[in-house]
Design a protein around this nucleic acid. Structure first.
Lengths: 342, 342
DNA sequence: GTTCTGATCTAGAACGTTCTAGTAACTAGA
DNA sequence: TCTAGTTACTAGAACGTTCTAGATCAGAAC
């Protein structure tokens, strides 16, 4: 009864609707929408006008179905890891200028890596970027056989054929932490270990090697823990019972280190006066003014950028064998380390 | 030249490939894949076998394109908010039994709410679940005109037509916090405020009302801050210069409260002996053994469940006007509150 | 006046599914 | 033997795009 209804009620407008309204073919509308060449300026404007009027919005699924390329990078990440969420932020920033979109799939309680990856594959991602994957090497190899896969922050030894790796030199990071503490005068340096977490083995090894090189072999002490605040807190509780305390602690990561810090503060052990603490990652946690943690900085934007680059290179036909980017970490000295008290 | 290649190299297998291999029609394969009825047990097994052999995986996009329903719930969340990531975990858990999938879209630096929502719409989500949206009411109204939209943890006054709301009774939560502190004997209770963050206005109001009801009007003191650890730390620094200190602090949320805690510990102000601290949210941050924060618990699984329910009800034809679920929070007493020292 | 060239536009076939409408082959009741 | 009702299956048209292969028409070159 009224004039022209803006939208045919209930159905979202399609290319055909726009085409009808502008009096052109759907193919032409498609051209205009993609900003492809093959339409005159005048028609282009007319089509855009029509699209605006009926509130047309391209259907990403139909678009991806038809075009060979999906230009979609699937990212698997741990919802509760600040280091991962920082990385995701970097991935968004890196993917856009390369002309790719990011599809997120979270690993959470009740949703394992298997499920997360399944959903990315079903969504037709062209490549996968896995943050700190825990899956067995065989599974990663199988995936890498199907599409380009980049593992971020997890080293694989022996290397998995076809799998791209972007990681920080964890052993070197641990070395820097130990060197820093030794330079301050510490000898009794404990490592709170990440267990089976990605990177943990290398950090442990780096710690051992550095201690040995400083002639501190008999001071090597490794406390098994994990990657969460609670793991760090547990280890710190065990430590604070010791007399005398070690004078310094190198924690597996920042989450772990904040757990350590808090227990020490509560136990009346002053940081850094009584004991120094070093973290790992330089996630935004460490940068917070009230934590202000000395930590081994992973260059998060760089890691993100390289991960995207590797994926994209693969997709754009790079046939060279899969490789590895190893980023040198850089110690960020803040206020949780100082010379040991006499 | 060899026998049957497992996969026709480079292309992912489709229904037609499975059909050819099993010697049936694509329609039948579709039936088997969807676990629909209309296939005998024998054929079913034969088809599944063929699918397994060539590594067939359904194409989610083609599937969604064809079926009227996408059964996809779009979720917008803040990458760096533990409260949001906790909620997302709950949403995954709630969506699955209802037969819906979750599509995530993060708000991050350089990726605003507008962008996040655009991508969810292009992906054909049937409904949107927005966690703590900051968008203006007019924008939310516009969206709600297009599809079912649920706002979680943000109240809208006046209510936006068509917009579903699921939230905690923030004023009531603030009241509980004040009541608890007053019952312990506190009178000098400061509120560290969330500014323009969703929920902040109600918490502020609840604090004021409760203080008035206890006859503590002249003790009302509100420190402007925000929703991050740093905001809390800044406010705490300001406070710790005061002599005498207030005896209790009610922080806008848990992130803010951890900032407060840490500054106090560093300044040698004992919690809870010298001063009590209450947070808000009961995100996993608060539950960590080494923080062990008394906090106003938002029932996160319940909020998630209700958000999904509201979206689903809308999608399954519920025509009643949009409504609001207001969940009563429950104070979780842990170790950061105690009677004031004499 | 032809033929070419380039720009603008269109018809119609993909893409990989699901859905509708049917066919074929049984069983069962009369 | 005939009809009716199942059950198992299939052909072919959707879904909303993009892509291929032209069609049409101007102007330029000969």
């Amino acid at each position: 009864m009224p004039g022209t209804p803006a939208v045919p009620a209930g159905k979202r407008p399609t290319l055909a609707d726009v085409a009808a309204r502008a009096g052109v073919s759907t193919a032409l509308v498609s051209i205009v929408m993609r900003d492809a060449k093959g339409a005159s300026a005048a028609t282009r404007e007319r089509v855009l006008q029509a699209a605006r009027e009926i509130g047309y919005r391209p259907d990403a699924r139909a678009r991806l179905l038809r075009s060979q390329r999906s230009r979609l990078l699937g990212v698997q990440f741990g919802l509760q890891h600040p280091f991962h969420t920082d990385l995701v932020e970097g991935l968004y920033a890196a993917a856009e200028p390369a002309g790719y979109q990011i599809a997120l799939s979270a690993v959470a309680a009740g949703r394992g890596e298997q499920r997360a990856v399944e959903s990315l594959l079903a969504d037709r991602c062209e490549a996968l970027i896995l943050l700190g994957p825990q899956a067995p090497a065989a599974r990663l190899a199988e995936l890498a056989g199907q599409l380009p896969v980049v593992s971020v922050a997890r080293r694989l030894r022996p290397s998995v054929p076809g799998l791209e790796v972007v990681r920080t030199a964890d052993d070197e990071g641990a070395r820097q932490a130990v060197d820093h503490l030794v330079a301050l005068g510490h000898r009794d340096i404990v490592h709170i270990d990440g267990g089976r977490a990605p990177g943990a083995a290398d950090r442990r090894r780096g710690y051992r090697t550095a201690m040995n090189r400083h002639g501190l072999a008999e001071h090597i002490r490794i406390l098994p823990a994990g990657l969460t605040e609670e793991d760090g807190a547990d280890a710190a509780r065990a430590l604070s019972a010791d007399r005398p305390h070690p004078t310094a602690v190198m924690a597996f990561n920042d989450r772990c280190a904040t757990g350590v810090l808090d227990v020490f503060l509560r136990a009346g052990i002053a940081v850094p006066d009584d004991i120094s603490v070093v973290g790992f990652d330089d996630s935004h946690l460490a940068r917070l003014a009230h934590i202000d943690l000395t930590t081994v900085g992973q260059d998060i934007p760089r890691l993100a950028h390289l991960a995207v680059s590797r994926a994209v290179a693969r997709l754009e036909g790079d046939k060279s064998p899969a490789g590895e980017d190893v980023i040198t970490p850089r110690l960020v000295v803040r206020s949780t380390t100082a010379p040991p008290s006499l």
